[in-house]
Amino acid sequence: MRNIIILASGSGSNAENIIRYFAGREGVSVSHVLTNRSDAYVLERAKRLGVSTKVFDRTAFYDNNEVLYFLRSCQPDLIVLAGFLWLVPAALVEAFPQRIINIHPALLPAYGGKGMYGAKVHEAVVANGDGETGITIHYVNTRYDEGAVIFQARCPVDPGDDADLVAQKVHALEYEHFPRVIEEVLQQQGRP
């Protein structure tokens, strides 16, 4: 059984989409959802879908390696960041090389880096008058949004689009492509 673990910080709509996608697939499951916020709605989504959850704090993530040890004990084939906002520490990246992926709501390298997430990205796209935007799925390294790109998808930003409308277009791309790309990455790993 291939094992996916999701890290999320907020609502968890992408996490729910991924869990539902793999619920219908043999040989793959999402075993855990981890979050750095005890009030994150992703916890409710995961519980409703029967997926185990774990909440952790900065100390467990950055200082005492509690999260690293927990992840090792779960033996994930892939760790998926779905709206997870903290920078992944080097020890975690080194423990799971090419097995941590993230989705970013823009066409990296544009609008990447610390502090560029969610509505902030869409507002910047609109403010700059960009004619298109999209999503980037990439491997995680020790710098925000700088890991090797796995996949990008684009959508137009039409005159008159506000940040909310751009967000809707980008979310549609996320829901359509993220689970499929996760599945492809697992297949490329070639592990039983």
Rank of each mutant, 00 (worst) to 15 (best):
R37F: 15
T59F: 07
P105S: 03
S9E: 12
P105R: 07
H138L: 02
R25A: 12
A40K: 12
C155G: 08
A167E: 01
M116Y: 06
E132Y: 14
F151D: 09
L68V: 09
S52M: 12
N3L: 01
H122M: 01
E132F: 14
S31G: 12
N36Y: 08
I135M: 14
A110W: 08
V121N: 01
I103E: 05
R191K: 11
H138C: 02
V51K: 08
T142D: 01
F151M: 12
A127L: 07
H171Q: 11
M116H: 00
N3V: 13
Y62T: 02
T53G: 12
V166H: 04
H177P: 08
F96K: 02
G112W: 00
A110E: 15
A119H: 02
N141A: 00
L68M: 00
P109E: 06
L34N: 00
N17E: 15
A163F: 01
L7Q: 05
I182V: 15
A60C: 06
E26Q: 14
A163V: 03
E16M: 12
V88I: 15
F151Y: 15
R45V: 07
T136C: 13
F56T: 10
Q75D: 06
H138K: 02
I137K: 00
Y117I: 04
V33P: 07
E146G: 00
Q187Y: 04
S31N: 12
H104R: 06
L87E: 09
D130S: 14
D63K: 11
V93M: 05
D57M: 09
I135T: 13
G131C: 13
G12S: 09
I79T: 01
F96E: 01
E44V: 13
P192F: 06
F178P: 06
G147E: 00
E123P: 00
V126A: 12
R191V: 10
A60R: 11
I103V: 15
I103Y: 02
T35E: 12
V157P: 07
N141W: 00
A127D: 08
P156Y: 09
S13L: 07
P76I: 07
I19W: 04
V166E: 11
A15I: 03
V170H: 06
G131V: 14
E66F: 05
V126W: 08
V149D: 08
G115V: 04
R72S: 08
A15W: 03
Q189R: 08
L81D: 02
N14H: 03
V55G: 09
A8S: 15
